[in-house]
Amino acid sequence: MKLGLQLGYWGAAPPPNAPELVAAAEEFGFDAVFAAEAWGSDAFTPLAWWGSDTRRVRLGTSVVQMSARTPAACAMHALTLDHLSGGRFVLGLGVSGPQVVEGWYGRPFAKPLARTREYVSILRQVLAREAPVTNDGPHFPLPYQGPGSLGLGKPLRPITHPLRADLPIWLGAEGPKNVALTSEIADGWLAIYYAPRLAGMYDEWLDEGFAKSRQKGSTRSRENFEVAATCQVVVTDDPVSVRAQLKPFVALYIGGMGAPGMNFHAEVFTRMGYGEAVRDIGELFLSGRKEEAVQAVPDELVAEISIVGTAEHVREEIGRWEKAGVTMLLVGCRDMASIKAVAEACQ
């Protein structure tokens, strides 16, 4: 089982100890370090800044939001960081949700699957650098010839030669169609919430995508595909208290990180079998009763999506997650001692 340190996105200011965390992750054998973005800090700059002191760990985005930048601009970020890191960059993408896409980026959210397919296709073209990049799809037409166009657009290839045409592209996906698309066109799945109990269901979704990929002549399969699952891993003798500390984050994603009637995170937990709790949490959170929403998060839900307990328990659970198909755990350690404890439990 590989480990990835999830630095996440910033709050009101940068985390003061991020350089120490990145250094510790590399020292204690973590495979990768990831940065994220919401509607504040971006994900690329922290990796370039903090990653400049690393030599081994992969540097990934988990995730950058597709509506934040055009496919060509995203490819420029990716090939640049891949060169600067000596081929250690992993590009993790996500569609986000309508509140952020339309409210923050001012872009339409409709047809996220079709947009993702076009986006990744353009990225692949840029990284391959085999011909000038074109796209005749409706979402990211290249050259652009729509309203306001001067009709002078010219297909181009990147001036900079990408270091790797096969730079890994991972997708953050939650629903069955999105997960199937991920295994069809991407190199890895970033699962924000994962329950080993449902591995059979996830496998069905992934196998659908692999089958479509093979029909197009691809060699993509479970053997060369990564499943990176967000999972709080905490070595402790007091698991009850730690799980209680995790509940506010779960309540936020269920109740506050999506629009009423369209909350992809809430749907994940509904598919896990917590539909009644999801409804209660959502209603409480949206009515301003956030503390009650936190208390409504079931203990068993938190236990399913995290690994909390003694070193022996953690080691056993990591083995169970690995058997369920997970190849990397994305953990949110916030001090060096936690990084060391998790790394030792994985050995």
Rank of each mutant, 00 (worst) to 15 (best):
G4T: 13
E20S: 13
L21A: 05
G29H: 04
A38Q: 13
W39D: 07
A48N: 02
S52G: 02
V57S: 06
V57H: 08
R58C: 03
M66T: 14
A68S: 14
C74F: 14
A75I: 12
A78W: 03
D82K: 07
D82A: 10
L84A: 09
R88K: 10
L93S: 06
G94M: 02
S96E: 01
P98H: 04
P98W: 09
Q99E: 14
V101P: 02
W104N: 08
Y105N: 10
K111P: 00
P112E: 01
R124T: 02
Q125H: 07
R129M: 12
A131P: 12
N135G: 05
D136E: 13
D136G: 12
L142C: 05
P143S: 04
Y144Q: 06
G153E: 05
P158G: 08
A165F: 09
P168I: 03
I169W: 14
P176S: 12
N178W: 05
L181R: 08
T182S: 03
E184Y: 03
I185G: 04
W189R: 04
L190D: 03
A199P: 00
A199G: 03
Y202W: 07
L206I: 08
G209V: 04
F210I: 02
K212S: 05
G217T: 10
S218C: 05
T219L: 11
R220C: 00
R222A: 11
R222W: 11
A229E: 00
A229N: 01
T230V: 12
T230L: 14
Q232I: 12
P239H: 01
S241L: 11
S241V: 07
K247R: 15
K247M: 09
G256H: 10
A259R: 10
A259V: 14
P260E: 08
M262I: 13
A266D: 04
A266G: 12
E267T: 13
M272K: 08
A277N: 09
V278Q: 09
R279N: 11
R279L: 12
D280S: 15
F285K: 00
F285H: 14
A293M: 07
Q295W: 11
Q295E: 15
E300I: 13
V302F: 10
E304T: 07
E304D: 15
I305H: 01
V308R: 08
T310D: 02
A311D: 02
E312V: 08
V314R: 01
V314L: 03
E316T: 14
I318P: 00
R320I: 00
W321T: 00
L329N: 00
L330Q: 13
L330H: 05
L330Y: 07
V331M: 02
G332C: 12
I339T: 07
C346E: 01
